[in-house]
Structures are given as structure tokens and as C-alpha cells.
Design a protein around this nucleic acid. Structure first.
Length: 818
RNA sequence: GCCGAGGUGGCGGAAUGGCAGACGCGACGGACUUAAAAUCCGUUGGGCUUCGGCUCGUGAGGGUUCGAAUCCCUCCCUCGGCACCA
């Protein structure tokens, strides 16, 4: 009798053994090529849920596979530990954010260890510990010294009742505070920014990296580069200093069709230009616009609204006086915060003009246009009309000609505009890395000297609902002296956006505990850049984008010498529960622990990979998990039963040959699928192989070399997916510890080449017959065979064969007519 | 709304220009059992069938092609992101 598969005992046993033997520790002293396999580190929200395992298990399989393929694999883990949820827990449950976070870390670490991943735990890092955030602050100072950090004004969500800044997540319904339901307002504050826009053009390029097209596309659209012209319109007002206003347009060819200008409601010139009779209305409109979210403002579905300021500007090209409006769909952050309105050739302007009775001047004639009114904006190219000396030109040529003219006259210049905005990193919160800046009444803004880092978070902060960071009320923290002149000064009390912490954690993994800098340059040079990064696609325009910017910034400081931090990227899909992304804050989490306790980590790992393509994610449903459990039990039994001595007859040569072919075909399929993250079909191939082996051994003794090769290969192919069970079986089948230091099997190309294939015969595209034929059959032979088949003749008799389409190795399609 | 991805049996999915439904779940039938669980064997998209097959079928509609789940156009639905959740 063979023993039962008991994952509970097996998994714990091997986890202890691997840890005791340092099986997964790696260093730089290896003859193997390096491979840095990075998984996005989890946020310390509480328990790990099944969504975390969905990210971790397959990436571990890939890392293990790379190790078996001969690489020196670094596969580290850590915790993203600063952020809003810890502070919310502090306010709600009176627990200190540090305590809350570290309890979560401890729990998540315990859960992660049950996964059986090959993490090198010596390298674990936690971003909220001073030994880590010291260097987050150090990087801030480096960026500040390089002129990449600056102070500027930006609005924040403000609850007037709670007197606190709210994250977007805390604004619920139609702009209400989640705690007291008070309408949220926007309040301007002095805050810190990183100059990410300086790298906009370089961030559009992906030199030497293999990233999914869809992520690159999202980032490119996020940057939103447009090529166009900045044109100035004249202003003639005694009480206004500015004598002109510049607008950005991608359509200089439509400049003669401008019938109005639109300013963002927040534009600083609005107050000066508005005439007294329009002041009240303008003021009301500005307030309303500021209470709206950007998504609402930019919705092309909702009705366009706007208000006339009473002021006019001059179109310098034709001397026309055009009214100046304000409208919420114009954003101060894009272009110059003002746009020209050309209703004839822009749909949004067209709708706006219709609503407010603004004239429509056609300047690009559609084909066959005879001066009639337009039903909708004509946005295509055409022939220029009503455009002075440019009449008769194609609009494509006109674009260049008018740009030249504008530049020659000094009315403006060709330029680029970007949707991308600088990165606001200030948070009026406690649980983040303090920004290491001191405000001195004499010296102004002063950096904290490097030797004084880290600027520690005070332990005794209070979490009062005021608009300021809790640090503001912590006298021992705020009050300090100027490092330059010694005068009493105040510290910056805002902390940094947590995306700053995740900008460089993967650099720290290369040399944890290093205290001469954020990383040991020699070790960094060995491991970086990351060879394979995996994580959720929801980070496309946030973390993955910030990290690229940060890398380029520190490269220009000479700290690293590569242009991109992540050479290959793979984004797994999202596990959805109750139609939403699984997350603690949504309260729709499923904990993996009970599945692990019942069926073992190997089954859970396998099931998460089997449910579908990894990049697709999907709804969580555990109904199929027993399939993996049953399969692993069959593998267990198949492996151990084979060792029984048997008096059955041996396999004949044909069976042995077929067994070897199946083994090698499976090796090839599994290797290629893991390499490309196609785990679901990889497991299907292993299941088919298991089914095949079960049948093959029926009625035969299995004491031959081919059988041993098959079983050995099966265990090795399964080792990355089910590391515990295969380690146990490896030992029980008399192999030396450990299966995880073995090489991945390779396949014999002769054994995987097909000798025969199934020729599909179609008549008019419909399947009519199948014939097994030799792999090297000629087209002529294929035709002969097909035409002689009864089933084919039934559909061709009495009809004329017009054409025969032959696809070698696949099919023959007979095209017939009546 | 904008940007990105997706929609195939009762369910998860396979097939990405050439055999639709691999593999697994579930369901049904059988074996074993006093019984159940577990395990093993078989059947399983719909309709028709003389049991040889025929026919319909991949969100909806149209198109390209000898041939479309796959490519193109229009529409519908779902998911992720939209700059302070991370």
C-alpha cells in the first residue's frame, strides 16, 4: 500500500528544511547568469487575500523555472508599509499606525511562508522602518538638489466640517465627505512637486525593454503629447497689464474660424478681465466648477456649460474681436489654460456655440460644400476658405503655412503640449516618510543635512481631524534649528506620497542593510536592471510610470547607469470578487488560509494558475479546486505505484517509443508555456500527460528506462508549480535532495517532430473528412487521397471543382460550384 | 466621459486566419460499498437523424476571405485606470 498524500505534513516539513539549508539564498558569487525576478510587493493592508496569491504564486513558478534553467535567480519580497489605511485604522480603532502595520506584516509574512515561494527572506524590507525611509528622504534631497523638486500651489479635497484633507477615495457620492457627508471643497495649498514633465519625451520611448503594448499605450496616452502652435491673441484693457493671451492649438489651420476664446475658470486673468455686469455670474460659475471632479468636467457626454466674461480678445490674423468665455471643460493644467473656440471644426466647440448662439465660421470646406450651414463640426482635412491668403490650400499644407506665418509675424511659435502634469508628492498625513526640509525665517527653504537623516516620525503624534498633518501639532517634531544659521526654524510637516517609497525598493533588495547609501553600487551593478517584473496592470500609469521617471532622474544624477529599471514586464489580471477588485478597503476579500489548511499550498498554487490565462484575471470561484487536488493525488499515486515490482509483461518497443515521444513533447510544451506565462495550458498538458501515463501502464510492468524517464520528467516539470509535493516524491523515488537544485529537463528535437498529421479535407470551407497522412506528403499526393475519399465524393459528385487550396500540414479545401 | 483590456457549452477556459469546445469543474449513468464518502469507468453545446450523418452555433448587426471565435466597421455589456486607495 502506498501512503496517502498528506500536504499538511509534507509542506511544513520541507519549508523548515529549505529554510534551515538556506536553499533559496542567493549572492553575487555565481558562475550562472543572473536573473532578477521581481514581484510587486504587497501593501500591508491586513491579511493576504487570494488576489495576493494570484500575483505571487505564478511569479514564483516562473522564477523557479528560471532557476532550474540555469540562472542565478534573485526573487525577493518586502512590504509597502506607509499609507492612508494605517492612519485610518489609527483614527478608527485608536491603534498606532506603526503597531497596526507591523502586526499586519507579521501576519502576512506567516501567510507568505505557507505559499512555499523561493523568496530570499534575508532581503525582506519594510518601507516604514527608519533604516529604509532614511534613504527615501535621501533620494528626495538628491532630486531637490537637482532642481527636480519644487514648491507650488495645488488644490486638495477639503472637508470644512472635519477640517481635514481627504483622499479621493474618501470623497463619496457627489462630492461628500465619507465621515460626515459634508460637501467637499477644493482648497489651494503650497505643496511639493517632482518635475516629471521634464522627462515626458523620454518616457514616451521604451528603448531595450519588452513591455506589453497595452501598458506602453496607456502610458503614452497618459503623457498625451500633442504637436501644435501657441498663438497669442491681443488684449486691450487699461486696467489689465497683460496685453496678450496665449492659447495652444493643434489646428492652426482653423485660426480664421475662431469665434470665441475659452479660459479655464481658475485662470488668473479671469478676475481682471471680467466686466462688472458679469462678475456675479462668473463668480458663481467658478465655485461650481471647482467643486466638480475632473472626470465630470471632461465628460463629453454632459451638456457644455460656460459663462461670458464681458471681455474680448483680438485675433491678430484677421483683426476680429472675439468674446472671452470661461467653461469647466478647459483645465488650467493643460496647455496655457485657455483655448480658442472653432465651432466649425471642433465638435465640442460646435455644441458650445449652438448652446450659446456663437457664430460658426467655416474655414475648411468639406468636399462639395457650397456654403450651407453645418449639421455638426467638420473635423477632417479639406480645402481652406475664408482664410485670407491661405484660401485654396489643402488644410494639411495650410497648417504649416499658417504656422510659418505666425512665427514670422511674432504672433506665436510651434510647440508641444502634454497632458502629463508634474507629480504632487505632498501629503498632509502622519504615516509617510517626512519630507526632509526646514523652513528658516532667515535662510528660507533649507535641506536637512545628509548626516541628520533620517528625519524620524515622532511616536507620540496625535491624530486630530484638522487640515494639517498630525506632525503640525507635534512640537518636538516641528521645532528645530536652521542647519545653516542656527536660528529657530520649523520643519516641513507634510510627508511623501507612498509611490516615492515604491520607486526604489527593488534597488534596496540588492543590498539590504547597507548603511553607506541606499544600495551597494557593486551589488546593484550585478543585479539591476530587473529582468522580469510582474504585477497588476492597475499600476500602468501610476507606480510603473513613476518608477521609470525616478530611474531616469537618478541616472542623470549618476546613481545608476541604465535607462529603464524593468527590462521585461508581465501584468497579471485582477481577481474580481462581487464584480470588483479584491481589496481590504472594499471588504470583498477571500483568505487563502482555509484552502491551504484543507488541500495544501501546492493545490492552491496550481488552481490559481489553472483558472485561466494569467493576464486575464477573472471572478473568484473555488468550485474547480478539487480538480487540481484530485490530479495531484493521481500524480502521487502514479509515481509511487510505479515502484511496485510487477509480474506483468513488459511494454513492447512501439509502446516504449510512443512513451518517449509523449514525454519529450510534454517537456517542450511545458517549458515553452512557463517561459511565456501560459500556466493554464502548461497544467493542461501535464494533466494530459498524467492521463496518458495511467493508460500506458495498464497491463504492463513499468520497470523500463522510458517509464523512469517519464516519471522523473513529470516531477521536474511539476516542481515549480508544486514545490512541496515534488520534493517529497523526489526523495521517495530515491533521488538526492533537492529537486529544486536540478536542471529543468530538455527535449530531444527528433522525438518531438511529428511523423504524421491529420489532413483536414473541406468542401467549400466545411469539414467533410479527416485523413491521417505522412508529415512530408506533397500537395499532389494530398489531392489524390482527398479526391478518392468517399465522404468527399459525396459532396463533389456532379459538381465542378474550381479551386483547391492546400495548407501544408493542415488542410485541403475544395472549392466547388454546382 | 476618456484611456486600456475582455465577451466562446450549465461553469472556468482551449483554439489568435484552417477540425470550435483541449484540460478541468458540474451534471447524468455505471462499478466498488450494508450504506455514504473517496476512488475508478462511461456520457455530456442545441436541433434533426434511416445512427451513415446532416444542420445551427463563439455578445448583436454588417463587411473582407476559398475559409473568421480569430481581421475590419458600427453597436451593446463587463472589468481595470483616470493623477490623494495602493
Amino acid at each position: 500500500m502506498i501512503p496517502k498524500y498528506n500536504p499538511e505534513a509534507i509542506e511544513k516539513k520541507w519549508q523548515v528544511r529549505w529554510e534551515a539549508d538556506d536553499l533559496y539564498q542567493v549572492d553575487e558569487n555565481s558562475k550562472r547568469p543572473k536573473w532578477y525576478a521581481l514581484t510587486m510587493f504587497p501593501y500591508t493592508s491586513g491579511d493576504l487575500h487570494i488576489g495576493h496569491w494570484y500575483a505571487m504564486a505564478p511569479s514564483d513558478v516562473h522564477a523557479r523555472f528560471k532557476r532550474m534553467r540555469g540562472y542565478n535567480v534573485l526573487h525577493p519580497i518586502g512590504f509597502d508599509a506607509f499609507g492612508l489605511p494605517a492612519e485610518n485604522a489609527a483614527i478608527k480603532h485608536g491603534i498606532h499606525p506603526y503597531t497596526w502595520t507591523m502586526q499586519n506584516v507579521e501576519n502576512m509574512r506567516r501567510q507568505l511562508k505557507t505559499l512555499g515561494a523561493m523568496y530570499d527572506w534575508r532581503r525582506e524590507l519594510i518601507t516604514c522602518l527608519p533604516e529604509y525611509y532614511k534613504w527615501t528622504q535621501w533620494f528626495f534631497l538628491k532630486l531637490y538638489e537637482a532642481g527636480l523638486a519644487y514648491r507650488g500651489e495645488a488644490p486638495a479635497n477639503w472637508c470644512p466640517k472635519c477640517k481635514t484633507v481627504l483622499a479621493n477615495e474618501q470623497v463619496v457620492g457627489e462630492g461628500h465627505c465619507e465621515r460626515c457627508n459634508t460637501p467637499v471643497v477644493r482648497r489651494d495649498m503650497e505643496q511639493w512637486f517632482f518635475r516629471i514633465t521634464k522627462y515626458a519625451d523620454e518616457l514616451l520611448e521604451y528603448e531595450g525593454v519588452e513591455w506589453p503594448e497595452r501598458i506602453k499605450l496607456m502610458q503614452r496616452n497618459w503623457i498625451g503629447k500633442s504637436i501644435g502652435v501657441e498663438i497669442s491673441f491681443g488684449l486691450d484693457y487699461e486696467n489689465v497689464d497683460e496685453k496678450e493671451i496665449r492659447v495652444f492649438t493643434t489646428r492652426p489651420d482653423t485660426i480664421y474660424g475662431v469665434t470665441f476664446l475659452v479660459f479655464a475658470p481658475e485662470h488668473p486673468l479671469v478676475a481682471k478681465l471680467t466686466t462688472p455686469d458679469h462678475e456675479e455670474e462668473i463668480q458663481r460659475y467658478i465655485e461650481r466648477a471647482r467643486s466638480q471632479t475632473e472626470i465630470e468636467r471632461l465628460s463629453s457626454e454632459k451638456e457644455k456649460t460656460g459663462v461670458f466674461t464681458g471681455a474680448y480678445a483680438i485675433n491678430k490674423l484677421n483683426g476680429e474681436k472675439v468674446p472671452i468665455w470661461i467653461a469647466d471643460y478647459v483645465l488650467l493644467t493643460y496647455g496655457t489654460g485657455a483655448v480658442m473656440g472653432v465651432p466649425a471644426h471642433d465638435q465640442r466647440d460646435f455644441e458650445f456655440a449652438q448652446d450659446y448662439n456663437i457664430p460658426v465660421h467655416v474655414v475648411i470646406a468639406p468636399e462639395g460644400w457650397c456654403g450651407e450651414e453645418l449639421e455638426e463640426a467638420y473635423i477632417e482635412a479639406g480645402t481652406m476658405v475664408n482664410s485670407a491668403q491661405f484660401n485654396g490650400m489643402s488644410s494639411d499644407l495650410g497648417k504649416e503655412a499658417i504656422s510659418d506665418f505666425i512665427e514670422a509675424q511674432g504672433y506665436g511659435k510651434r510647440t508641444m503640449s502634454y497632458r502629463l502634469r508634474d507629480w504632487l508628492i505632498s501629503r498632509q498625513r502622519y504615516w509617510g516618510a517626512p519630507i526632509p526640509i526646514i523652513y528658516c525665517p532667515k535662510c528660507g527653504i533649507v535641506s536637512v543635512p545628509e548626516g541628520d537623516l533620517p528625519v524620524l516620525l515622532p511616536e507620540d503624534a496625535e491624530f486630530k481631524p484638522t487640515g494639517e498633518s498630525p506632525l503640525e501639532y507635534c512640537e518636538s517634531f516641528v521645532n528645530t534649528t536652521c542647519p545653516k544659521c542656527g536660528e529657530p526654524s520649523r520643519r516641513e510637516t507634510d510627508t511623501m506620497d507612498t509611490f516615492m517609497c515604491s520607486n526604489w525598493y527593488f534597488l534596496r533588495y540588492t543590498s539590504p542593510g547597507y548603511d553607506q547609501g541606499p544600495f551597494d553600487p557593486a551589488k546593484l551593478a550585478y543585479w539591476m536592471p530587473v529582468d522580469q517584473y510582474t504585477g497588476g496592470a492597475e499600476h500602468a500609469t501610476m507606480h510603473l510610470f513613476y518608477a521609470r521617471f525616478f530611474n531616469k532622474a537618478i541616472r542623470d544624477l549618476g546613481l545608476v547607469n541604465f535607462d529603464e529599471p524593468f527590462t521585461r514586464l508581465f501584468n497579471q489580471g485582477t481577481i474580481v470578487m462581487e464584480r470588483q477588485k479584491m481589496s481590504k478597503s472594499r471588504g470583498n476579500v477571500v483568505n487563502p488560509d482555509e484552502y491551504v489548511a484543507k488541500l495544501g499550498a501546492d493545490t492552491v498554487r496550481g488552481y490559481l494558475m489553472f483558472v485561466g490565462p494569467w493576464d486575464q484575471g477573472g471572478g473568484w470561484d473555488d468550485s474547480g479546486i478539487s480538480g487540481i487536488w484530485r490530479w495531484l493525488n493521481r500524480v502521487w499515486a502514479l509515481t509511487l505505484e510505479g515502484q511496485d515490482t510487477s509480474e506483468l509483461p513488459p511494454m513492447d518497443q512501439a509502446m516504449v517509443d510512443q512513451l518517449r515521444r509523449q514525454t519529450h513533447k510534454t517537456i517542450k510544451k511545458v517549458a515553452e508555456d512557463i517561459e511565456k506565462f501560459r500556466f493554464n495550458t502548461m497544467l493542461a498538458a501535464l494533466m494530459e500527460f498524467t492521463n496518458y501515463l495511467s493508460r500506458a501502464r495498464e497491463g504492463h510492468s513499468v520497470t523500463n528506462a522510458a517509464w523512469n524517464e517519464a516519471i522523473e520528467s513529470l516531477l521536474l516539470l511539476l516542481a515549480p508549480t508544486a514545490p512541496h509535493m515534488t520534493e517529497e516524491l523526489w526523495e521517495r523515488t530515491g533521488h538526492a535532495y533537492s529537486i529544486h537544485t536540478q536542471s529543468f529537463p530538455s527535449w530531444d528535437s527528433e522525438l518531438v517532430s511529428e511523423e504524421q498529421f491529420t489532413l483536414v479535407v473541406q468542401v467549400n470551407g466545411k469539414l467533410r473528412d479527416r485523413v491521417t497522412v505522412a508529415a512530408d506528403i506533397s500537395e499532389h499526393e494530398a489531392r489524390e487521397i482527398a479526391l478518392n475519399r468517399e465522404r468527399v465524393q459525396a459532396h463533389t459528385d456532379g459538381k465542378k471543382i474550381e479551386e483547391m487550396i492546400y495548407v501544408p500540414g493542415r488542410l485541403l479545401n475544395l472549392v466547388v460550384s454546382k
